[in-house]
Amino acid sequence: MKWSVLVVVAVLALVTSVILGPAAVPLSDLLRSDIVWSLRVPRALLAFLVGGSLGVAGASLQALVRNPLADPFLLGLSGGAGLGAVVAIALHLPGPWALPIAAFLGALAALGLVYRLGLIGGASLDPRILLLGGVAIGAFAAAITTAIVSLADAAELRNAFLWLWGGLSGASWDSVLLVVLYIPIPLAVLLAASRPLDLLALGEESAGYLGADVEAVKRRVYLAASLLTAAAVAVSGVIGFVGLVVPHVARLAWGHRHRVLLPAAFLGGGALLAFADTLARTAVAPRELPVGVVTALIGVPVFAVLLRRWTIA
């Protein structure tokens, strides 16, 4: 029942996102329209895949750092990706792929630095240091980003600013294909880690006594979730709240078992981002809102309600 509702919502999100748009395409022409096939369908699919990836990355990272407030971007990736993107914009790097590649590299650099910091105490990856290191590296990258943006001219600044709030206007069949080829591996790694993640919720010591190879699990989960997030940020900018709110809503409905939770977070995250992107495209058409603005406008009230429920419980 819960699953049917979720699947229906996900399909509905995709369908609405194909039907609705700033250009009026009659329903009868939907399947023949060039706008639909070359713009709306890839964009809907990309939104869905990115949202799903963020949902899964968020759910796994929350279990890894043992903090329900963890967001995939909390670990410094947004800062690194933002810096990469802004550098690409400031240097006027040519071609449609310059910005995503620069953002991806920026995210990877942040990932590597935070991971290195996480290993600071020796052979064991410390999730608390990951969290602190992520915030620190993110703030550092954001400071450099702001410095560059403040020296840029007005048009560049607007581009950079909009990119930082996320957007899927760059979607194409190429980007969809790239994402489709890229995400199965990190998704499979996280799904394979779902039982150890259940154990990790009891603490590392208990998880080890119950048979989990804790160090290996922590590293695998951190790297896979971060690589998912880095890909998401490369094709769509920084889209907040999907990775934070979706796992919590999914937990309320499906419980905390990751084997069920992760697929639910994927479908839920995909549906949310597809809906949010439809809103972002149509609400102020012909202009567009950054989709991160929409997810925050939806996500924050939902989150406030969740917090209220917790404090009451």
Binding site: L202, Y209, D213
Partner: peptide
């Protein structure tokens, strides 16, 4: 670890459930 956990069950001093 997984093989050991089939032979030895442990009740640690304390643990806190995240969820």
């Amino acid at each position: 670890r997984q093989e050991l956990a089939r032979l030895v069950g442990v009740v640690p001093q304390r643990e806190d459930n995240l969820f």
